[in-house]
Amino acid sequence: PLVTCLNTSLWHANPDFCVAKSCTPPDIMNGNFNYTTDLVLGTTIIYTCDMGYRLVGQESAQCVLHNNEVFWDNVPYCASIPCSPPPAIENGQSSDGNRDFTFGMAVTYTCNRGFSLIGDPTIHCTVNKDLEGVWSGPPPECKVVRCKNPEVKNGKKLSGFGTEYTYRHTVTFECYPGYLLNGSSTVTCEADNSWNPPVPTCEPGQHPNALCKEPPTVDNGMHNGTKSTDFVPGSVVVYKCKDGFTLTGAASIHCKVDHQHQGVWSKPTPECQSDVPPVGEHPNALCKEPPTVDNGMHNGTKGTDFVHGSVVVYKCKDGFTLTGVGVLRCIARDEYRGVWSKPPPECRGGANMIIVGIFPLLLAMLIMNI
């Protein structure tokens, strides 16, 4: 409160004698606020909500004065984003339990006895660009799938023995000596009651005119076939890559006979991809097996290292509720080590719904793009 007359004929006063009061930081659950200065009188802040929530009220507030006290003139709140009830399916049911669904929750479908589930059994409540709750994808279908017993003349089954084949059953074949396989050795029963690829045939091995030309070349790699040579059915060539490149695809292909008795190579040509990762990627940053949770499980393969970008989903046993983020993602700590993105969730008793947290913005956007 004092000022002093200096020998310079100027008054000296404490410049901080009167300072602006500051507002208390606002407490907004499931949200935050952005500011660039101290929260003093006159400051304006912008509110934002966490992923899965939307703002109710005005997005900005100002620190104002009333009765010589400062306070925020507006404090909105962040409400969870709901999804409509999950779609019903014929000949099956979901695990919804007739509950309300909000962002991050999931339902899993099962089919009645005798029906096969076609599609992803689990869908999640996520958000679109307008911050409206939507399901991550369409529900699966429950269909009766029956494929005919596949038989190959002059050949035999190596796996998939039986007389009844339903969705995703596979069968592997082999030709008798003196015959060459024409087509894929392994076929799968698909949802349209057909085998994919088509069931192969076993053709006689002597086709003097069924010759393959030189195998295709690959960039940054080579094969062991003789250049400018025709290859008879059954001939095999092996590919390998130059140093610094890794082979992607089948390492070997063989000459086979097509339905027109012409020689063709059995598989697509492999590729040699550079071992140097693109900027921002760390393919060698592996994560160890995800943490286990009491009264729950995840969909990761036990005893397996997980590459950068891998995602695992947790769910709880019946009678337990998942608390926390239900999806973990393998992220790179550095070039050689990976870590899981968040702490594992918990499975707490007292509820019978499956709640799966979705890894924030990136995973939600990925699901919407799919």
Rank of each mutant, 00 (worst) to 15 (best):
A250H: 10
D100I: 12
N154S: 11
C5F: 01
P215K: 08
N154C: 07
E190L: 13
H207C: 15
W195T: 03
T321Y: 11
C78Y: 00
K315L: 11
L158H: 00
T110H: 05
Y179V: 03
K21L: 14
I370W: 13
I370D: 15
P15S: 12
S310R: 02
M222Y: 10
G137A: 11
V107H: 03
I354L: 14
R337Y: 03
E59P: 10
M29P: 10
E164C: 04
D16T: 05
E335L: 04
S116G: 09
I354Q: 14
N352A: 10
G183I: 01
K129I: 06
N32D: 14
H308A: 04
G155R: 01
P215S: 04
L363Q: 12
G350I: 05
T186F: 01
V325A: 12
L41I: 02
L55F: 02
I367R: 14
L158Y: 01
G244L: 06
T248C: 10
P277M: 09
F161N: 07
T37A: 13
G92Y: 01
M105C: 05
V356S: 12
C147H: 05
L286C: 04
N182I: 04
K302S: 09
T4D: 14
A61K: 02
A250E: 15
P268W: 02
M368N: 13
E132L: 12
M368E: 15
L2V: 09
K302C: 03
Y336W: 13
H259N: 15
V307G: 09
L39D: 02
P268E: 13
G326V: 00
F101N: 07
G349C: 07
V56L: 11
D38L: 13
V199K: 02
T186G: 00
I46Y: 09
T248Q: 15
T24P: 08
V327G: 12
E132S: 11
C272G: 03
S136H: 04
A61H: 02
V145T: 02
V134T: 04
A251T: 07
L117K: 10
G296I: 05
I331G: 10
P200K: 01
G244D: 03
S194F: 01
E132F: 01
T269N: 09
T269A: 14
V40G: 13
S159V: 00
P85N: 04
V70E: 08
L180D: 07
H12G: 14
S22T: 10
L181V: 02
S95I: 04
D120V: 03
F71Y: 13
R333L: 08
G349D: 13
G350K: 11
T163W: 06
G97P: 01
W195M: 06
I123L: 12
G324R: 06
T301Q: 12
